[in-house]
Lab assay of single mutants.
Amino acid sequence: MQRVNMIMAESPGLITICLLGYLLSAECTVFLDHENANKILNRPKRYNSGKLEEFVQGNLERECMEEKCSFEEAREVFENTERTTEFWKQYVDGDQCESNPCLNGGSCKDDINSYECWCPFGFEGKNCELDVTCNIKNGRCEQFCKNSADNKVVCSCTEGYRLAENQKSCEPAVPFPCGRVSVSQTSKLTRAETVFPDVDYVNSTEAETILDNITQSTQSFNDFTRVVGGEDAKPGQFPWQVVLNGKVDAFCGGSIVNEKWIVTAAHCVETGVKITVVAGEHNIEETEHTEQKRNVIRIIPHHNYNAAINKYNHDIALLELDEPLVLNSYVTPICIADKEYTNIFLKFGSGYVSGWGRVFHKGRSALVLQYLRVPLVDRATCLRSTKFTIYNNMFCAGFHEGGRDSCQGDSGGPHVTEVEGTSFLTGIISWGEECAMKGKYGIYTKVSRYVNWIKEKTKLT
């Protein structure tokens, strides 16, 4: 034993070699072989497995989906700052455009905790909710729209109204504003409101030439003092309507412009014939205590009207009353817009006519005020429907199939267009061939041609 100890002390290297040989010859039971080890760690190889990531292109799944990435790591994937920024906006807080917040056709661009709407022409605001041009839906104005110097929408209202708090709607500024039905039992019968379409306001006024200088022999019209197929109006439903009495009662109609003036057809009036105007009328054979009678003290036909040349060209006249009318729910003026808007309103496509005229061709006159909704007829169809001249200051309205029309005794009465609950004068009943005849239409004086003249002559002093 002493000898062994001496050998170990003198030859430590020998001992180490012996131990190493023993270990190498022993069977290893701690580690699995290569094949079995792979069965336990069965993990798919990654895209760049075996390579240094710093030297390969980034992978979106590896960089940002398996674990949260930084902007720089995302930049490695896209290799483009702009594309990385677009991805980053949604990656950080989701897609803010998912709810489609942009209105009126706006395009949404996502941002971090926010979004941006790219608005089409005519709109602005956070969600493109603000109209900035009158060309689109009248700028959301209830009545009139004008573009300011910086191309912003400025709404306005006709006389007797003021802008509401929203700067879009119009509200009454006087007790009985024009064009409004205020009798409670008839307010439910107000005709369907007309909503502004998209309009090209630059070209809204037709490029028409008034044929002022045409000389033409007097034409022989049949029954051209021209509501057939209409309905009984309720008291106060058309408070701007008046009836004219002269040699015979209810020979023509008219509309209240203001307390002192009536507008009617020029062919209705004769110099030297006494005319009485009755406002607030409903049943011409009954006294309903809503009527107001006034005498006409002055007749002003349009300066281009000449019955000797043509009885229905420039067929418009103004009547001055001896005493002002007292405005109330049964006696209310009709609204008159400017030339541009009167023309736009007419193009809405349908209007209402009213009167006490004959209820059928050569038949009896109506006792109760009649009204009828009539569609506008395109000019080409209008011209083809008659052998008589249709001037540019006239328009056609009615039904091709016949059966409904204005008729004798309705002449001078109103053709009105309702705009968001307020009625505007767009025409004056003038003439036609018979009444409600198939293929024939009622012919009306186009008020847009005469609004400046009306307003100039009827100013209240």
Rank of each mutant, 00 (worst) to 15 (best):
residue 243 V to I: 11
residue 246 G to Y: 07
residue 271 T to W: 03
residue 237 Q to G: 10
residue 301 P to T: 07
residue 138 N to C: 03
residue 185 Q to P: 13
residue 310 N to I: 02
residue 81 T to A: 06
residue 419 V to M: 12
residue 338 D to C: 09
residue 429 I to R: 14
residue 330 Y to N: 06
residue 249 D to Q: 05
residue 256 I to T: 02
residue 259 E to A: 07
residue 7 I to K: 09
residue 342 T to N: 04
residue 153 V to F: 11
residue 303 H to D: 12
residue 128 C to V: 02
residue 25 S to H: 03
residue 179 G to F: 00
residue 459 K to D: 13
residue 253 G to K: 10
residue 326 V to Q: 13
residue 82 E to A: 12
residue 250 A to K: 05
residue 403 G to M: 15
residue 385 S to W: 14
residue 178 C to N: 00
residue 277 V to A: 09
residue 243 V to G: 03
residue 4 V to R: 10
residue 8 M to A: 12
residue 192 A to C: 10
residue 338 D to R: 06
residue 2 Q to W: 11
residue 456 E to D: 13
residue 380 A to Y: 10
residue 444 Y to T: 01
residue 388 F to D: 13
residue 280 G to C: 01
residue 168 K to C: 06
residue 255 S to K: 00
residue 162 R to V: 08
residue 404 R to W: 15
residue 249 D to G: 11
residue 45 K to W: 09
residue 138 N to D: 12
residue 220 S to I: 10
residue 444 Y to D: 01
residue 91 Y to L: 13
residue 186 T to S: 03
residue 345 F to G: 01
residue 178 C to V: 00
residue 33 D to E: 03
residue 297 I to T: 07
residue 261 W to F: 04
residue 304 N to Y: 10
residue 432 G to D: 06
residue 41 L to H: 13
residue 177 P to Y: 01
residue 29 T to S: 08
residue 129 E to I: 04
residue 81 T to K: 13
residue 430 S to I: 14
residue 90 Q to A: 10
residue 6 M to V: 10
residue 51 K to M: 05
residue 325 L to T: 01
residue 446 K to D: 15
residue 59 N to H: 07
residue 225 T to D: 05
residue 313 N to F: 07
residue 338 D to I: 03
residue 460 L to T: 05
residue 44 P to L: 06
residue 155 C to I: 01
residue 109 K to M: 08
residue 21 G to H: 05
residue 376 L to H: 08
residue 461 T to H: 15
residue 108 C to K: 03
residue 148 S to P: 08
residue 67 E to H: 12
residue 234 K to G: 10
residue 210 I to M: 04
residue 283 N to E: 09
residue 460 L to P: 14
residue 40 I to K: 12
residue 267 H to G: 04
residue 351 G to H: 11
residue 360 F to D: 14
residue 13 G to N: 07
residue 214 I to W: 08
residue 67 E to S: 04
residue 55 F to G: 07
residue 220 S to Y: 07
residue 267 H to T: 05
residue 87 F to K: 15
residue 340 E to C: 03
residue 296 V to W: 00
residue 394 M to T: 14
residue 196 F to Q: 06
residue 227 V to P: 10
residue 273 V to Y: 03
residue 271 T to H: 10
residue 235 P to L: 13
residue 361 H to D: 14
residue 419 V to W: 07
residue 40 I to Y: 09
residue 223 D to G: 05
residue 411 S to M: 15
residue 410 D to I: 13
residue 156 S to Q: 06
residue 45 K to D: 08
residue 257 V to P: 00
residue 316 I to D: 00
residue 359 V to S: 14
residue 83 R to V: 10
residue 36 N to Q: 08
residue 425 L to I: 05
residue 84 T to P: 15
residue 45 K to G: 10
residue 302 H to D: 02
residue 250 A to H: 08
residue 92 V to Y: 03
residue 356 W to F: 08
residue 264 T to E: 00
residue 403 G to F: 08
residue 196 F to M: 04
residue 148 S to M: 09
residue 408 Q to A: 06
residue 349 G to M: 08
residue 98 E to N: 12
residue 179 G to M: 00
residue 159 E to D: 10
residue 347 K to A: 13
residue 396 C to W: 01
residue 178 C to T: 00
residue 159 E to Y: 05
residue 23 L to T: 02
residue 409 G to W: 13
residue 369 L to V: 06
residue 437 M to E: 15
residue 56 V to C: 13
residue 424 F to P: 00
residue 447 V to N: 01
residue 436 A to C: 06
residue 417 T to P: 00
residue 374 V to P: 09
residue 285 E to L: 10
residue 326 V to Y: 13
residue 117 C to W: 01
residue 216 Q to A: 09
residue 334 I to V: 10
residue 58 G to Y: 03
residue 137 K to F: 06
residue 33 D to G: 13
residue 263 V to G: 00
residue 439 G to F: 03
residue 177 P to W: 00
residue 124 E to V: 13
residue 201 Y to I: 06
residue 309 I to M: 07
residue 186 T to M: 08
residue 111 D to V: 14
residue 26 A to S: 09
residue 104 N to K: 14
residue 435 C to P: 05
residue 37 A to V: 15
residue 32 L to C: 06
residue 111 D to W: 06
residue 182 S to R: 06
residue 283 N to D: 11
residue 181 V to C: 06
residue 73 E to I: 10
residue 55 F to N: 11
residue 198 D to V: 09
residue 276 T to E: 06
residue 100 N to Q: 12
residue 297 I to R: 07
residue 222 N to P: 10
residue 304 N to H: 07
residue 305 Y to D: 01
residue 449 R to V: 15
residue 434 E to C: 12
residue 275 I to H: 05
residue 263 V to S: 02
residue 372 L to A: 07
residue 177 P to T: 04
residue 19 L to E: 00
residue 396 C to I: 02
residue 332 T to N: 04
residue 33 D to S: 08
residue 289 H to T: 10
residue 71 F to M: 15
residue 281 E to Q: 12
residue 131 D to H: 04
residue 121 F to L: 11
residue 197 P to N: 04
residue 58 G to I: 07
residue 396 C to Y: 02
residue 348 F to C: 15
residue 138 N to K: 14
residue 350 S to D: 06
residue 304 N to T: 07
